[in-house]
């Protein structure tokens, strides 16, 4: 198994990278570090796709002139062009999701003054309890009057 993994070392590295990103996503309590973990997982996907598209000894998929006004069109000359398009889609979606998540994190920081998800949840629970206590008091006042 180890020699097979060494043969596919780019894919193995991508899998390990995505594992690092997932651990980061689960273990970090800081929201910005969580988003960085998500970005590491995205990078692992790009590496995997780029590794799948590579063919040994072939050129990038840009047509090469054959010297007499024509173009070399044999598919045995160029690497796979499809993963490039897929990686582009991945990068764009990852940038958009990261920006949106960071904007939401910034709003959370403005409201609760912390980036730690546990502290923010604790403050949210306190607010909720405060609200419920007020509702109970108001109900009692209405009932007693």
């Amino acid at each position: 198994m180890l020699e097979k993994l060494l043969l596919n070392h780019y894919e193995a590295a991508a899998v390990i990278l995505s594992g690092i990103g997932l651990t980061n996503l689960l273990l970090q309590r800081n929201l910005i570090k969580k988003i960085i973990g998500l970005n590491i997982m995205d990078t692992a996907v790009y590496l995997f796709l780029a590794a799948k598209g590579y063919v040994e000894g072939r050129a990038a998929p840009i047509l090469i002139a054959d010297g007499s006004g024509g173009w070399l069109r044999s598919s045995a000359l160029y690497v796979n062009p499809v993963p490039a398009g897929l990686v582009l889609t991945g990068i764009v979606v990852s940038v958009s999701v990261t920006a949106f998540a960071l904007a939401l994190t910034l709003k959370l920081y403005e409201s609760y003054g912390t980036l730690n998800i546990d502290e923010a949840l604790m403050k949210m629970t306190q607010e909720q309890e405060e609200l419920e206590a007020r509702i109970d008091d108001a109900e009692e006042e209405v009932l007693s009057s």
Partner: peptide
């Protein structure tokens, strides 16, 4: 990660045409 690594070990060789 170990499940995915076991899958990667069964993938076709890297860069083969």
């Amino acid at each position: 990660v170990s499940l995915l690594l076991a899958t990667v070990a069964e993938l076709p060789p890297f860069g083969h045409e």
